[in-house]
């Protein structure tokens, strides 16, 4: 059964990886930058910021999808862009969902040792750029976890992408929405097989990411 839908399955995996890659890239670029900024500094309102990002970590995917749907619907603010039911809008919805998670986790990682690392760096008379590099390098493993967490949320997410992407065959169908569809069709065992494929993809991405971080260590 899996073999018979080869070509379509490959397309679905392709869309899934494309979406998850860009969701992870954008949400981590934004989120880690902000998280590092917040984590290093102590300022008035830091707790409030953390409370907000912490709350947004519990944002239900369907709600994130709904917000993006309302914005991009034909009658919505960005309706003119005609982005609804595209991979682009799926990435936007996922970034809304994942960026707060990345900010919150990153700042918590950075907060835990920024002061000590800063002290060391100042003692060694490092420039600001070198100081930042040391900070990131020391937190490499933890930040990798943050990135993988973001990727995991993206690839496993169904509520938001189903709503704004529409699960359109040969266009916006991803692994999770395909699994949902097969379940709705009553093809339970096939749906389960797709779930296993999704896990294998996730495993491969995790292995590659870990290898990359190890390489850098040398």
């Amino acid at each position: 059964m899996l073999l018979s839908m080869d070509r379509e399955l490959l397309h679905i995996i392709g869309v899934t990886l494309r979406m998850s890659f860009f969701s992870t890239l954008i949400s981590c670029t934004l989120g880690i930058t902000l998280g590092v900024l917040i984590g290093q500094k102590s300022f008035k309102g830091k707790r409030t910021v953390n409370k907000i990002t912490g709350t947004l970590m519990g944002l239900p995917p369907v709600v994130a999808g709904l917000i993006v749907y309302m914005l991009f619907t034909r009658y919505g603010v960005f309706g003119e862009l005609k982005l609804l039911f595209t991979v682009e809008v799926m990435v936007i919805a996922q970034c809304l969902l994942i960026t707060p998670v990345v900010i919150n986790l990153t700042q918590s990682v950075i907060s835990s040792n920024a002061a000590i690392i800063r002290e060391t760096a100042v003692g060694l008379n490092f420039t600001a750029a070198k100081r930042l590099r040391l900070l990131l390098n020391e937190n490499r493993q933890a930040l990798l976890s943050v990135v993988l967490n973001a990727f995991g949320r993206s690839i496993a997410e169904v509520g938001a992408v189903s709503l704004v992407g529409g699960n359109i065959q040969w266009k916006t169908r991803v692994m999770t929405t395909a699994i949902m569809l097969e379940t709705n069709k009553g093809n339970f065992s096939f749906a389960l097989a797709l779930g296993i494929i999704l896990l294998v993809i996730s495993l491969i991405v995790n292995i590659i990411a870990n290898l990359l971080v190890k390489e850098e260590k040398r």
Binding site: F85, G166, N167, I168, T177
Partner: peptide, 18 residues
């Protein structure tokens, strides 16, 4: 020809949008 793989309500919303 858009194969939506969704329930009736979602397909009608999609038809409205498109």
């Amino acid at each position: 020809y858009i194969n939506a793989g969704k329930g009736m309500g979602a397909c009608l919303s999609m038809a409205d949008q498109m």
